[in-house]
Amino acid sequence: MLLNVIERRPLQADTRLPVVFLHGLFGRARNMGFLQRQASQTRRALALDLRNHGESPHGPMDYPKMVEDVLETLEAHNALPAVLIGHSMGGKLAMIAALQHPEQVAALLVADMAPARTGYGQSTLAEKMLHLKFPPFLDRKAATTLLEKLIDKRDVRDLMLQNVRLGQNPGWEIGLPEIMASMPNIENWPYMPEGHAYDGLTLFIRGEHSPYIGAQHQAVMNRLFPRHRLETLPNVGHWLHAEDPKGFSKLMMKFLAEV
């Protein structure tokens, strides 16, 4: 499946490897716009709408299919090998791509996701989103009020608002039925045999107040990503790149300078 891509390039030609942004569940490529603009100052930067998100096609979701989507799309754009930067579900996808196709992944940045089975209320949120009642007409102000019933944090709510079709006949633009049917796959972590590891440069960034990366994950992170390091972004939760974009960008740009 070829995915929708937003691409930015530096003003001057650059021979460094491209960087690719993979958003999380309920996200989309343009959610990563600030970070993509920062990265594109020095190298080619591509942000992808994953399947069932943004302007990409809809269909059943599991990580093998999604890895194929990403690699097929990047090959079509002559953007391999690449540095992968993924948040949440996108981080899990980036890790699996690196483990299965290490020759295509020059380096790896994972935002608030461990190589483990996850959940933490995402299924509940998806269920609420699926059953949200939309009025016959919706503008941005009314949509913000409507989403306040589901999402407390304003910065996260603003990201989710990009998934709402405004105007006449409003509704969700993302493939919510397909996402709901695939939630067991999305929350799962595929089995990786002993000795399966990615030896490239890897950075994990966790939110200080997020449960997604904990001490219980350190052993598997050491085994699967032996060259990784872990940074903690203070005073933020799981949506760390939205809650503190400047802090996240600083860590990201320092990492990219090492690649």
Rank of each mutant, 00 (worst) to 15 (best):
R8L: 13
R16G: 13
F34S: 10
V105L: 05
F255S: 10
K133I: 09
S182V: 06
V259R: 13
L147H: 07
L71H: 10
F134C: 01
I186K: 09
P211Q: 06
R206C: 04
R157A: 02
M89Y: 03
F225H: 13
P184V: 02
D62M: 09
P115K: 04
G175A: 11
L230H: 01
V83K: 09
Y198P: 00
A94F: 05
L80A: 02
Q36D: 03
D14W: 08
A215N: 14
R30T: 06
E127D: 14
S56K: 02
Y191A: 13
P57H: 07
V236Q: 11
I151Q: 07
L48K: 01
P170N: 06
W239F: 01
L201Y: 14
A94W: 07
A79P: 11
T73S: 00
Y63G: 07
A98I: 01
L256N: 07
M61W: 00
L71T: 05
H101L: 10
H238S: 00
K128S: 03
L146F: 12
K65C: 02
M89K: 00
E231P: 12
V20L: 08
G207N: 08
N52K: 13
Q168M: 08
D139N: 15
S182T: 13
G200T: 07
K149I: 03
T42I: 04
G91L: 08
D199R: 15
R8E: 14
M95W: 03
L46F: 05
G90Q: 04
R9P: 08
I179D: 04
S56N: 11
P184C: 02
L166Q: 03
G195M: 02
F204C: 01
F21H: 08
P234M: 11
S249H: 11
V164E: 03
A242F: 08
I186A: 09
L71N: 05
A39M: 11
D244C: 10
A126R: 05
Q104C: 09
G167K: 15
W172T: 03
H217G: 03
Q38T: 02
G195D: 12
H238K: 00
R154I: 12
L71M: 04
P136D: 15
K133W: 13
R37C: 05
M252G: 00
F34V: 06
H209E: 13
V70N: 12
I205N: 09
E127V: 06
Q36N: 07
A39Y: 01
Q36G: 07
E148T: 15
L84V: 04
N169D: 15
G214C: 12
G171C: 08
E178L: 05
E127S: 01
E103I: 03
G90N: 02
L147C: 05
Y212C: 03
R51K: 09
V70P: 01
Q36Y: 01
N185I: 06
L35I: 12
